[in-house]
Design a protein around this nucleic acid. Structure first.
Lengths: 130, 130
DNA sequence: CCGCATCCAACGAGATACTG
DNA sequence: CAGTATCTCGTTGGATGCGG
């Protein structure tokens, strides 16, 4: 279910003709929301460690991402939790144990990121004059 | 040609088993490059005004995006030009005339953004405990 | 018309130290 | 173990004014 056309032809969300659900501005702001959730120095790295559906403890993530500080790790996790991307599961134990995972919606980010990765790697080496 | 699996099953880029071309870190950094090019307050709005393959003058873009400052417009355009996403065509005239458009690679961003938009709009209203 | 330079405020993110 | 608190700094983006 594609909302934007991917061709070089005229597209449906252009101002003037809006047969589709989106104008240039609504489409942009919708994607901006997505990009905002993905911004942040570490979010994608965290996400990729969580893809696959397994749960990881705070300390697991710390080990998996050596250069991250505790502050950044918790901050980015909490933001993604607030965004509905990651789940936070607290086990009331001594010592404490908290596991992080992905929501179903978070999992569904995977194909979109795949598209982005494919695009990024298709970058031509030499500048192409259109 | 998908490089990441989109299922909830085990995925190929996970540490330990790397039959695919990507580890969690190379995949993340590849996408980070893409996200970095899309960050910036106005880049997506500019992009959407350029999709469709038509050329737009500097002043056209200024009019199309009322709240943007000249500094921001030129800055984001130049960055995207450096990234190989937009083209810059200078007509040596009096008064000056410069037209901006998308490279072929820039055009090919469209489906990837579409995937992101579809994902963003699929966000569940209520928090879903996975 | 198109763009550059400068100054400034706001925010993101790292380092470090401390707590339940 | 899993956080919180504070400080600092680099970067981003806005406003304004000048130049080819």
């Amino acid at each position: 279910m594609s909302q934007l056309t991917s061709t070089h032809e005229k597209v449906g969300y252009l101002p003037g003709s809006k047969p589709s659900t989106h104008t240039a501005f609504t489409a942009a702001s919708g994607i901006e929301n997505a990009v905002r959730m993905l911004e942040g120095r570490w979010k994608l790295v965290i996400l990729f460690n969580l893809f696959g559906g397994r749960l990881m403890r705070f300390s697991d993530l710390e080990r998996a991402i050596p250069d991250i500080s505790q502050k950044m790790l918790i901050q980015q996790l909490r933001q993604m939790e607030a965004d509905g991307i990651v789940t936070r599961l607290v086990h009331h134990q001594v010592p404490p144990k908290v596991e992080y995972g992905l929501t179903a919606w978070g999992q569904s980010l995977c194909p979109a990121l795949d598209a982005l990765l494919t695009w990024a790697e298709a970058r031509p080496a030499s500048p192409d004059a259109q």
